[in-house]
Design a binder for these strands. Structure first.
Ligand code: SF4
Ligand code: SF4
Lengths: 144, 144
DNA sequence: TTTAAATCGGATAAAATTATCCTGTTTAAA
DNA sequence: TTTAAACAGGATAATTTTATCCGATTTAAA
């Protein structure tokens, strides 16, 4: 469904958000540990999230990553997915046709575009804050 | 969403089915051409489809691939996806957690499993015959 | 019987994704 | 001022996925 990079990105963002709700800043090391992700790969992804304006990074000792409540509210999951994976999951053909042309539909067109639309609607309507709250309260988890 | 191999597999299966509806057998070369897929890779996938009982292969001159109407009716898209990609798309975690434990859900659990279930229901309720009919009638297409 | 079309399957290659390493810079604390 | 923690970013490595190649076998037609 999503790339590993994208899964790590969402997990990392939610972890940063839940800590920011408690006014804590987290390091890459903390993030990788808490989300069971490879640390160096996670570091790369944090750079992308920072450049994409999803969160803030603070350099130097005592540095790390943090989010404002505004960012948490403004950031929908679909934005993170698009930032890391592009829009293929939202616009791509279920059967892999290079170009989606409704006048020349693939056999799965009707049924697939319905489900794809539901996925997009779900990710469009879910904010980082929505999910970070449950995480902060210990109701949900980011690693097994 | 699906691997390239899986996309090729579904496209190839639908092509074989539509031709079998007209009592025509098709070669790997024909399939690759008609579905805009790499021929050698498609050949490998045809072997998997044959071993998996999705369709029949006929060796030797005038050989190729074919499906019975029973196979078309019995084969749901979900079976092809499972054969090629396994069940990760149906059972995997949207955030990539290794083990899905409803008692220890990821933050996206509720929303993701809903959409994932709709995808599965769609693929479970769609047979190869359903899609091959529109293809045979020229209403849908397998390449741009 | 010979030939050629076609699948089978193992080996290999190319490309993309995932993951690591290392050096430099920033910055707070000692 | 020195030190060490921490991110930035370029280079490289490992793994997986995608793709190709080739010799062997099967089989219908010439
Ligand atoms: S809509 Fe149908 S045709 Fe267009 S891309 Fe999706 S699946 Fe393929
Ligand atoms: S069910 Fe929820 S927790 Fe379990 S895997 Fe799917 S999304 Fe993750």
């Amino acid at each position: 469904m999503f790339s590993k990079a994208c899964e790590y990105a969402v997990r990392a963002t939610l972890l940063v958000a839940s800590h920011s709700l408690m006014d804590e800043r987290v390091s890459v090391k903390d993030i990788a540990e808490a989300t069971a992700s490879p640390v160096a790969f996670t570091a790369k992804i944090m750079q992308q999230l920072n450049r994409g304006g999803i969160l803030y990074s603070v350099q130097g000792k005592q540095g790390g990553f943090e989010m404002t409540r505004e960012q948490m509210q403004a950031t929908k999951l679909s934005q993170i997915v698009t930032l890391i994976d592009g829009d293929r999951v939202f616009t791509g053909c279920g059967l892999g046709l290079r170009e989606c042309n409704a006048k020349k539909p693939c056999p799965l067109h009707e049924r697939f575009s319905t489900v794809r639309g539901e996925l997009k609607a779900m990710l469009d309507s879910t904010t980082v804050l929505d999910l970070a709250l449950g995480l902060k309260d210990g109701l949900t988890f980011l690693r097994v």
